[in-house]
């Protein structure tokens, strides 16, 4: 139990970072109605691009920006495979994900891990977030505002604000219409190929940003760090939806729910680990949890049908 409490700030920080990734997944899965599997690859692409640039002396913010851009390129690849080449969305994502494995290795100079040397305090101080900061703040060696929960929290808030604005614009609305009803969108003059590609780019850019943050947090980029990211993202989206859908109606709050969903996911994982579960079973646990939550709406509809009101024009 003591272990769990000690690990909690770290788990919450990590949950927040994955929450940013989950917000990216939300854009494709909930808004565009596409399960985009490229995120498993683009998460690591963001991390790899950041770490390689940063360790080679590039400014931290520029390195993060570059990470976002390469993530967007990954999204562009998936988008073009889907729209221009007519490959089903899910397969396009798988192809991008597979290809990215090699690309990620290439970015990292054909090594499976590239570390940020945080024994060098000057380097450590430059980082935005680090697991070290969690301990340092607890010991009083760093100011409170350097705590990862605070820093990533600000990132999340800013991201939600920007997305809230964007999806309220004409362009954002056309993207939502594409996901809601592509036939209608085209009939209203929306180029649904363009909006799909745009959504995938936006999503993967955000996922790569999250990867860059996690690479800082763990002070390393690792080739397998994105494996199962889509499942974690879906878990966060679904947990957020199940817990808050009655409470949160507003779009910004829905995104917040996703972020909270990711935190809950990570805290639960920590709790399960603290109870002594073999970490090797984690992925099986994640897959099972997501499978169950995805099944619930289907079972509900099949075995407990809700009467829907139909008929006359006057019926409100």
């Amino acid at each position: 139990m003591l272990n769990l409490i000690n690990a909690l700030p770290g788990a919450v920080s990590q949950g927040l970072i994955w929450g940013i990734m989950a917000i990216g997944v939300y854009i494709t899965y909930k808004l565009l109605d596409i399960a985009d599997l490229s995120v498993d690859g683009s998460f690591c692409t963001g991390a790899a691009a950041f770490v390689v640039l940063f360790t080679n002396g590039v400014n931290l913010w520029l390195a993060m920006l570059a990470a976002v851009l390469v993530g967007m390129i990954a999204g562009l690849a998936t988008g073009l495979l889907h729209t221009f080449c007519g490959i089903p969305a899910i397969l396009s994502g798988i192809l991008t994900q597979l290809g990215l494995y090699s690309i990620n290795l290439a970015i990292m100079g054909m090594k499976s891990t590239v570390a940020v040397n945080i024994t060098d305090t000057a380097t450590l101080d430059k980082l935005l977030v680090s697991l070290r900061f969690v301990q340092d703040v607890a010991k009083g060696e760093r100011p409170l505002y350097r705590h990862p929960i605070f820093v990533v929290g600000i990132f999340t808030a800013a991201l939600i604000a920007v997305l809230y604005w964007f999806f309220g614009t004409e362009l954002g609305c056309s993207l939502r219409a594409t996901g809601s009803n592509p036939n209608m969108a085209r009939a209203q003059g929306i180029n649904t190929d363009f909006t799909k590609v745009l959504g995938l780019m936006l999503s993967n850019g955000i996922v790569a940003l999250s990867g860059a943050l996690l690479a800082q947090f763990n002070s390393a980029s690792e080739i397998n760090m994105g494996r199962g990211a889509i499942v974690i993202g879906l878990a966060a989206v679904i947990i957020g939806e199940v817990l808050f859908s009655k409470l949160f109606r507003n779009f910004a709050l829905n995104l917040l729910a996703v972020s909270i969903g990711a935190i809950i996911y990570y805290v639960v994982i920590q709790a399960v680990l603290a109870m002594g579960m073999n970490p090797n079973y984690l992925k099986l646990l994640s897959a099972t949890v997501v499978a169950v939550f995805l099944s619930v709406p289907y079972w509900k509809e099949k075995y407990m049908p809700v009467k829907v009101k139909t008929g006359g024009l006057q019926d409100a």
Binding site: T169, E170, G172, R176, G179, N181, M184, A187, Q188, I190
Partner: peptide, 30 residues
């Protein structure tokens, strides 16, 4: 089911339609 976007509001649907054939930029959707 085909003519409207079900997960969007009535005003949002109308606003989408009122911009038919126009460039959609970063101005407010409604």
């Amino acid at each position: 089911m085909l003519g409207t976007a079900p997960s969007m509001q009535i005003v949002e649907n109308l606003a989408l339609a009122s911009r038919r054939g126009q460039r959609r930029g970063l101005g407010w959707g409604v």
